[in-house]
Nucleic acid binder design. Structure first.
Lengths: 200, 200
DNA sequence: TTTAACTTTCAGAAGTTTCTGAAAATTGTA
DNA sequence: TACAATTTTCAGAAACTTCTGAAAGTTAAA
């Protein structure tokens, strides 16, 4: 398994960034590699390509399975386990999204809900309670929003893409007036579609 | 500085979660404390309340300032620096959001854009390129979306909250009467989940 | 059965991040 | 200016995370 420069750069970058998205460097690399490589890969291939130990690969695969980001396959006449990324890019992004929501947002909401149940004992606590309520409202909104987003299918996603930065317009549309033209000119960075081909 | 149970719970939780949102435990705690405490606090008070060293507080404050999440104040006749959270909860959330986008999404978009410039040298690379294009499209969409969201003011936010999970309706609304010819096949792949416990 | 092909586990090593506290730097007042 | 109040820095210690590789475990086929 020799990686092209392209694949190498992609994989290394997702290793660094991966830690931001909830998994460690090698898990991020493994996921990136399984994502750009269309053929299934086995543990030895991953270990060789990423130059990491076999044991590390085993642990990484376990974690990626816990995240439901990879799928196990078998090749006829070969006892090795082969893996691919589970589903389309959008499926993967959605899974990461959803999983993080479960892990990061839900526990916080649970705690805040609990804190809001006890009555404040003095002025100080009353003010704190108010802040907690605000945080709670915001996070709950985010949670619902994420929930809705993650339920969208591929088609809806494309609609949303086409709307682009038109969210403002949508808000106006739904809410009626709002004449206050804040001149929010969302400057849309234009993609240079280099490949010519429209992405599959 | 003695924290109420309520404050204690809030602060500790945000310490744990904070690391997910891009800063470390104590920075998360400091931020949480400054957020629920309505009065400005100085470095010594933070150190005492959170039981951490003075030096650590200094570093944490520096980081919070870099994130533009806190504000410096002075009390007449007191040379100490006092800090409060910068703005409303929504302002804070937006700042965190925006800052993370800059740090996490933008570098990735830059890299992917670069990768898309070089022509694939074989079939394998062509397929990889396609995947990269897909990832790029998705992330760019997210980026624009986040960008739009972070520009919404408090009022728009409340509208959005009221819409709640009505995003679907909005999508239908905007896209015309496109009949539901597309049956939503929401869950595509069901992984054979061995769902082991997360490794210790 | 037994064996060989393969995967998983886990103790300790290596690497990384965070924290402390004493010393250095900065600042305001007299 | 001198000094005291305050903040910042940073070397090393402590805490935490990740990685390796040998050994244990599992499985399929002979």
């Amino acid at each position: 398994m020799k990686l092209s420069n392209q694949a190498q750069a992609f994989v290394l970058h997702f290793g660094e960034m991966g830690s931001r998205w909830g998994f460690n460097r090698t898990v991020g690399q493994m996921f990136a590699l399984l994502t750009i490589h269309s053929e299934p890969l086995n543990a030895d291939q991953l270990a060789e390509a990423l130059k990491i130990s076999r044991g590390n690969v085993s642990m990484g695969l376990k974690e990626l399975q816990a995240w439901r980001l990879i799928e196990l396959h078998h090749q006829p006449g070969d006892r090795k386990d082969y893996f691919t990324a589970a589903g389309s890019i959008w499926d993967l992004a959605r899974t990461v999204f959803e999983e993080r929501r479960k892990r990061e947002l839900d526990p916080t909401l649970t705690l805040l809900r609990q804190l809001l149940l006890t009555d404040p004992r003095d002025e100080q606590e009353a003010q704190a309670q108010e802040k907690i309520q605000e945080v709670y409202s915001l996070l709950e909104m985010l949670d619902q929003f994420a929930n809705t987003l993650s339920k969208l299918d591929h088609k809806d996603l494309h609609k949303l893409m086409k709307l682009g930065s038109g969210l403002n317009k949508l808000l106006d549309l739904k809410a009626g007036v709002k004449a206050k033209a804040t001149t929010k000119t969302t400057n849309t960075t234009t993609t240079k579609s280099t490949t010519g081909k429209k992405a599959k």
